[in-house]
């Protein structure tokens, strides 16, 4: 369906895509133009521009309170933007709500985990599959053949998705009772179940130990390769960010202060001053 779209070059915007040369043949998954939001008098995000290419893994970094999570909330319409445009597959998401944006292709995880904690692990994943299961309320109550067929299919699909993180054995567990790392992984599985073209991960490695983080890195790349989707992630673990992100966008006080490849960003004096340097000092202090 992407082929029908004329391959015109995008109108250049002040801050261009992170890696403009990636997958030029395919139109970008998402273009964000001059996005901004005010909370009362506070401008939390301003003039945020971003283009995400097909199957790109991009990072969004910056100090606490920079507005990273707020950007995820804007992209998924948890907050209504005050300014700006979000184009998803070239289509404006203006007027869509969170559920509609998900059906249009954005899935996400949350910084403070939001699972359906009283439901089983399997049911959490099946809820991700909700819009791919077709039977209605009546078939469900009357237990018509459609119910059995589609529930069986959903079960198989859920198990397949859980196998990404080797979590099939946990299917009967209450999601809220899982260990922290498993809850984060379950959130990713649930998001993937919605069949997105863009996956937003908000601090996926938070609270994980180095070996878990290493595994997560491999899995994010694997997910991208298998599902052919783009990933935009917020993360403070620089090893993860520099290790798998192809493009990085640095945010400070709600504004983009740098964009580029990991190499470019790491050596940018503005970024070192605002974020990386300060983090280095903190790490050193924490170690001593």
């Amino acid at each position: 369906m992407d082929e029908k779209r004329p391959k015109t070059k995008l109108v250049p915007v002040p801050s261009k895509s992170i890696i403009p040369e990636r997958n030029l043949g395919k139109p970008p998954i998402m273009e964000v133009l001059r996005l901004g939001i005010d909370f009362g008098g506070l401008t939390a995000v301003d003039d945020f521009n971003l283009t995400l290419s097909h199957t790109e893994i991009a990072g969004l970094i910056g100090p606490n309170g920079a507005g990273k999570t707020t950007i995820f909330n804007l992209l998924t319409k948890v907050y209504e933007p005050t300014r700006g445009t979000i184009l998803l597959h070239g289509k404006d998401t203006h007027g869509m709500n969170t559920a509609q944006v998900n059906r249009a292709g954005i899935a996400r995880t949350f910084q403070n985990i939001r699972l359906f904690s009283n439901l089983s692990v399997e049911d959490n994943v099946k809820l991700g599959l909700h819009n791919q299961i077709g039977y209605g309320m009546f078939s469900g109550i009357m237990r018509l053949p459609r119910y059995w067929k589609e529930e069986k299919h959903a079960h198989e699909k859920a198990m397949e998705l859980l196998s990404i993180f080797d979590m099939q054995d946990l299917r009967g567990h209450r999601a809220g009772a899982l260990p922290y790392g498993a809850q984060r992984r379950l959130e990713i599985v649930r998001a993937l179940a919605t069949n997105p073209s863009l996956l937003l991960l908000d601090e996926p490695a938070a609270g994980m130990n180095p070996s878990e983080t290493g595994e997560l890195m491999e899995n994010i790349v694997k997910i991208r390769d298998v599902f052919q989707i783009s990933v935009l992630l917020i993360e403070h673990d620089m090893k993860l960010v520099m290790g798998i992100c192809e493009g990085i966008c640095v945010l400070n006080f709600g504004k983009i202060i740098a964009k580029g490849t990991p190499g470019e960003v790491q050596n940018d004096p503005v970024v070192i001053e605002a974020y990386l340097g300060r983090r280095g000092e903190e790490d050193r202090r924490a170690e001593s």
């Binding site: 998924t76 948890v78 709500n97 969170t98 559920a99 509609q100 998900n102 059906r103 899935a107 996400r108 949350f110 939001r114 699972l115 359906f116 904690s117 009283n118 439901l119 049911d123 099946k126 809820l127 991700g128 909700h130 819009n131 299961i133 039977y135 209605g136 309320m137 469900g140 109550i141 009357m142 237990r143 119910y147 589609e150 529930e151 649930r190 998001a191 179940a193 919605t194």
Partner: peptide, 28 residues
């Protein structure tokens, strides 16, 4: 039967976490 079906799961998802339910495309 409603509770143990697609619709029932969606209803309980709204109870457990409305924002998460919306984020997986469930119409509130």
């Amino acid at each position: 039967n409603l509770i143990n079906s697609r619709a029932g799961r969606a209803i309980m998802a709204l109870r457990d976490n409305r924002i998460a339910a919306e984020s997986v495309g469930i119409p509130v």
